[in-house]
Computed example of a mutant assay.
Amino acid sequence: MAPRRLLFCLDESKQSVRALEWTLLHLRRASDELHLVTVLPPLAYNVYPVAPVATGAAVAAVTHQWDAQRRAEEHQAAEVLRAAVDLVCTQHNKVPRDLVHTQALPAAGGASGVAESLVEYARVQRIDLAVVGCRWVG
């Protein structure tokens, strides 16, 4: 059989890790490429306190806040992907590293941007099978 490209979208939740393990046990073939992807949340553009006139210092402070927020989210995404690679390459089935691809995607469009980012990634990478969970927002 020809190798397939499997897309697995994950986050830092225990449910995500369990779903990845299930995918590796039940769906993955030895020759399949595994694309591990996480989607960065859209930036929360909270500007406070609100001032009638934006000063240079206020704009710089907000920009710094956005940059710090994005760096923290990118760091968290890198940790999630690093743990997933460790799981699939060393702990579970010992998937060869050259068959594992990782990507932290920016949110693109929509309410959260997750679906749009994943669909575009799947289209560009010609993904054969995608495994995604649900968000436990409550």
Rank of each mutant, 00 (worst) to 15 (best):
A130P: 13
P52G: 10
L10F: 02
Q76P: 01
A54L: 15
A130N: 06
L36R: 02
E120D: 11
V137S: 13
V80G: 02
H92D: 01
V47F: 09
A2R: 11
V53D: 04
K94Q: 12
G113Q: 03
A107S: 12
L81G: 06
A30V: 11
R4N: 04
A72L: 07
H64S: 13
R29Y: 09
L105H: 04
L24P: 02
A44Q: 15
E21K: 14
V17E: 15
A44M: 12
A83E: 13
E79Y: 00
D86G: 11
V80C: 06
R70H: 05
Q125G: 02
N93E: 11
C89L: 05
V124P: 00
A51C: 09
K94H: 15
E21V: 11
A83Y: 01
D128W: 05
V124K: 08
D67H: 12
R126L: 08
R29H: 14
D32L: 07
C134I: 08
H35Y: 15
M1G: 15
Q125L: 09
A72Q: 11
E79R: 11
D67F: 05
A107P: 06
V132K: 00
L99A: 10
R97T: 06
C9M: 04
R29C: 10
W66E: 08
Y48T: 13
A44H: 12
L36S: 05
V119D: 10
V119R: 10
V80K: 02
A78L: 05
F8W: 01
A57P: 01
A72R: 12
A107H: 01
I127M: 06
